[in-house]
Design a protein around this nucleic acid. Structure first.
Lengths: 222, 222, 222, 222
DNA sequence: GATGAATGAGCGTTCATTCAT
DNA sequence: AATGAATGAACGCTCATTCAT
């Protein structure tokens, strides 16, 4: 895959200066993933990141207005990448059932191997998304950010999979609710499995979560 | 209901000094709900709360170690109250189907009227829970807090409704996953309806959310 | 010894209410020794002490104006007790050499056994004196406290041993300097032995310190 | 001396950012000496220092982690400077007796004139060292700081003078104890002379202290 | 006399940000 | 364009102390 040189393009709304355009920018992205994963988004600061990349924190401000924007960038990257994987996984497959199944698999499983994109560790990123992405849109200025298109990539993924749902059952009324429930539910159940086991019925990384949500979706489409 | 004098008892693990035991304590609870609702939990600080209740922030520390503990207290109060409402709503009803339906209704609808408990505004509290409660257990020390029983009340609610599920279908493998998906899903869809409408298919406060999750649950139990 | 009922009388300047006159007062003394020993005088506060003795911190203020006064009280108790031991150890001994030797031994050795005074743990107290007593008189208001007689007990001990020195060599010009150097030096060397070994030539609790200061004193009196 | 441009180099362990490298840093050092001297180390805070230098306290944190580190820096500077003076005073002198005498003089006398180093007032600094330096190593984390080399400069001075002692009497067992007793003793006797005269036999700044400790050392080496 | 409740003041610290280079 | 230096503002927290009972 590496030699295909697929590049994930991030909307220019999501940064002040494109981090993909410079060595420093790429370092910011790659190390912020490591750091957020390590200490959690709450404790993550530009100062700490600056220290980690041996660069003054003020330099980071050239790329991102604040740590929140950086998180939005990361989630956006993640969803663009998921979109790309969805296309890749469903292309040339006739049966919508099959396509839907494969899509749910992609949406509900955490990444286990880091392989495709140079400076981004997808395993860590996926863990961040599963546990912290909710903070990206749970803020006082969601509305304004949403208007600016900050969540486009996520919305597009939900839309794409919803379309398969509609393909199977054009009359279905709640395709987006269905898919976003799957996505967010899978994130949460993963977290519960690790930290609050009494709220779930599985251990982390088992197939139970995928099974549960797959069944849930297909129940609706019968 | 008011003259029934039902009192919600909160586990002493969840505070340093019982806020229900003094005028100041009750003020802390009642005004913190107002303030968190207004400015969001992120921006909420003891200093601001102190100003609002005309009291020094240091006094608040006598009751709660930090703002996080206060949030945990509020969510715990909320879930104890929901538990009480669940009992009340399902008592004397034979049919488990009926009990389950009523339970899902309670879990998925936001409170519209503030009536029963003196100094607590349940409408605002319910809004806080729907949009901020996730932050109560998404922290670096979930595990330790869970051990200390901080999330007992929530877990008990999930357990109670899971039991009805099992009554209907004793062989069902994922009752907790099912119910926690309903609860968390309803919270999120409400939020989406208000802020990220493209991730859902409804407007806020419509019955769509309850309908969706009710159908979802019963699909599994057929 | 216990049945001799020797009681150490502390000057009333050193407390607001005599701690020896009530159960609570004795608890304050006995537990403050334990607590200061455990966490150090710097981190010691009336609040923590209050918690330890299950009493409100405000009660402690009845006995002592502040934590500093309490430390002064403890050191005063210690020196009164040392005075008593000096008398006891030198009584009926003719030779001033012998008396001086025994005195130096008492001044330079830490207590190993707790035996005589009911609610006071002399072992811990002696450790506190060795490592923290300096803080009792290194303050901005030494002068005023000294005028009020807060350090009488310590001064009396120095005076008593200086008198033996003068007995041996009436012309000696610096008896007080000599004895206070011995006392403070022994405290410090003990501390160095434990924490800054490169500033001394011995390990903790060896006889080297007593030997060194004994030789030092007798060198001057030849 | 000024035109010799001797510079005292402080180990980089002892600061976060070298205060000698900027105007602000030098101001921090020079004014902290004035302020500690005036109000005592106990009452000294970064906030007060910030006000004195018309700078926000947060700026000071760029240089020193906390007020304790700053004190350690000052003592370290002092001992490096003393080391330099010792070298200067003993160089080219044959007789170890003579060198030892001169060394003891330097160790036991407070500085009377501020002459050599630009922004540092040695008179005030020496007074601080005499009365407050003990607090630099009487803390809960001496051991860790000692490991990090925070007290190197002091240890080196003790070592240097101990070596002269050993030169005169190679068999002597306690050279470090001897010299550290001289240093710490002189500090204390000075303090006593000013504040607790009954513990000494001299007034401040007389030659008695130097005489006493000189005699004490030479008594041992006979 | 002892206690519980409450508070004001201030400390140490960090963050996000700006300015000058 | 990237960086280093500096800062204002606020946060979380604790202490010593007072007041009312």
């Amino acid at each position: 895959m590496q030699n295909l040189h697929i590049q994930i393009e991030i909307d220019s709304e999501l940064y002040s200066k494109n981090p993909d355009s410079s060595e420093l920018g790429r370092k910011i992205i790659s190390k912020s993933i490591v750091l957020i994963h390590e200490i959690g988004f709450e404790n993550f600061t530009f100062r700490k990141l600056g220290k980690l990349i041996n660069s003054n924190e003020s330099s980071i401000y050239r790329y991102f207005e604040n740590k929140h924007t950086l998180l939005v960038y990361l989630t956006s990257w993640y969803w663009s990448w998921i979109a790309y994987r969805l296309v890749f996984a469903t292309t040339n497959i006739e049966s919508p059932e099959e396509r839907l199944k494969k899509s749910i698999l992609i949406l509900t499983q955490q990444i286990k191997e880091d392989n495709s994109f140079g400076y981004i560790n997808e395993v860590l990123l996926s863990e961040i998304i599963f546990s912290e992405s909710i903070k990206a849109y749970h803020t006082k200025n969601v509305d304004e950010e949403n208007k600016r298109g900050c969540f486009k990539a996520y919305i597009a993924v939900v839309q794409r999979v919803s379309n398969i749902v509609l393909e199977m059952k054009p009359s279905y009324k709640y395709p987006h609710m269905l898919i976003s429930t799957v996505i967010e539910g899978a994130h949460q159940q993963n977290y519960f499995a690790e930290h609050l086991p009494k709220l779930t019925d599985t251990s982390k990384d088992s197939e139970a979560i995928t099974d549960f949500y797959t069944e849930m979706v297909f129940n609706f489409l019968k």
